[in-house]
Structure formats: C-alpha cells, structure tokens
Simulated assay, not measured.
Amino acid sequence: MKNVIILDLDGVLILTPNWKSDGIHSDGYSEFNSDCVQNLNSLMDNLDAELWLSSTRRLSKNLGQFQEIFKNRNIKVPLAGFLPGGTLGTERKMEIDTFLDHEPIRNFLIIDDDKSLNGLESDRKQFWVQTELLIGFNTEKLNEAREIIKKWV
C-alpha cells in the first residue's frame, strides 16, 4: 500500500489565464510558477508519497518527458506515473475515482482546481485541496495540504 499525491498542473503549478499563452521554459514546455513549485517541494520533503499526474497535459507527453520537465523546474520528487484514462472530455472526478478504486493506495491527497471534484464522495473529497487557476498551490493551500496529511493513518 502506498501514499499518493494526485497532482494537476493548470491552476496548481501553471497559473496562466485561459486567454493568455503560457510562458515557455528554455526546454520548450510551459513555465511553472516558482513559488508553487517551492510549496510542492516543501510538502514533499520527508513525505513518503508518490507523485501522480492527473492533468490533461499528460496526453501530450510521455512519463519520461514529464519527469525531465519536472526535473528542469526543480521539483525534487520524480513523477511515479499518470492517472489512467485521460481521454479528452473525461471528467477528472471519474479518473480519480477509477484510480483510487484500482490501485493499492493507503493514503492520498488531491491537488487540483477542477470543479468536477466537488462531486467526489465525502470520504474522498476531504482529501482534496482545491486551488484556483490564477493563484495555484500557494502558502495557504500548502498549509491546507499539511492539515489533510495529518489525517493519514
């Protein structure tokens, strides 16, 4: 059994408004907000948890490419994998429910701005940190995540 952080990108680490093009990193992929990256690294410090990507952006690159992207942005923990599914138009809630139903997960935390997660059952929704598109994983959300992790068994 493992501990898992389910991570979105847009509205978590990438804070670009929908009407604007992403800033591009020297590796050719979208910039991540450095404060949000620092908060994610702080959360992951000394935490025995795998990092799984739920973002629809996972459809455009393979795991190795995303691991390199994360490394280039100084994210200390490598991605363990992608949530299965991820076809365009699939509701995030359904992807997360399927993942949690089929993986040997002991504890989890979801960091995502997707409003469909309001439909999660309460026993799952309590482990969701809801971020905002233009604010992301700020200090307030980091503290909220730490409080949720304290509930892990």
Rank of each mutant, 00 (worst) to 15 (best):
V37S: 04
N33V: 10
P104E: 12
G28P: 11
G11K: 02
E132A: 10
T98I: 11
W52V: 14
L88M: 12
K125P: 04
L133Q: 12
Q126L: 13
Y29G: 05
F70D: 07
R106G: 11
I69C: 03
L7R: 00
L134G: 04
V129S: 07
L88C: 09
S26H: 14
G81R: 03
I5T: 01
N33Q: 11
D112F: 12
S26Q: 15
D97N: 11
S30W: 12
S54L: 10
D27R: 11
D27A: 06
L120K: 07
G81T: 04
V77C: 08
E140R: 11
N3T: 01
F137W: 03
L79W: 04
V12T: 12
E144W: 00
I14D: 10
W19T: 15
F70L: 15
R92N: 09
I69P: 03
R106L: 13
K115V: 07
S30N: 14
F82L: 10
L53C: 05
R58C: 06
E91I: 11
F108V: 06
L120Y: 07
P78A: 06
P17Q: 06
L59G: 05
K115R: 12
L9C: 02
S26E: 15
D123F: 09
I5Q: 00
I96H: 09
D97W: 00
F108K: 13
N118L: 13
G89F: 10
T16H: 10
E140T: 12
G119I: 04
H102S: 15
T56F: 14
E132K: 11
C36W: 04
D48S: 11
N3K: 00
K76L: 06
S122A: 12
L117Y: 02
E31F: 10
G81E: 04
L134R: 08
G81M: 03
S42Q: 10
C36K: 06
P17R: 06
I110R: 02
N138E: 08
V12G: 02
N138W: 05
V12K: 00
I96R: 07
L142F: 07
D8N: 10
N46C: 08
I14G: 07
K93L: 15
D10E: 08
P78C: 04
K141Y: 00
R146W: 00
L63E: 09
S122E: 14
K76S: 14
K61S: 10
L109G: 01
P84M: 12
S55K: 14
A49Q: 00
L13Q: 02
R58Y: 12
L51C: 02
W128G: 08
K2P: 01
I105C: 07
I6M: 07
F70N: 09
D45W: 01
L88P: 08
L142A: 05
T56Q: 14
T139I: 07
K71H: 11
I105K: 00
T16I: 08
T139G: 05
K141N: 02
D112A: 08
V37A: 05
S26D: 15
L40S: 06
L51N: 01
E50S: 13
K125N: 11
F70T: 04
W52C: 01
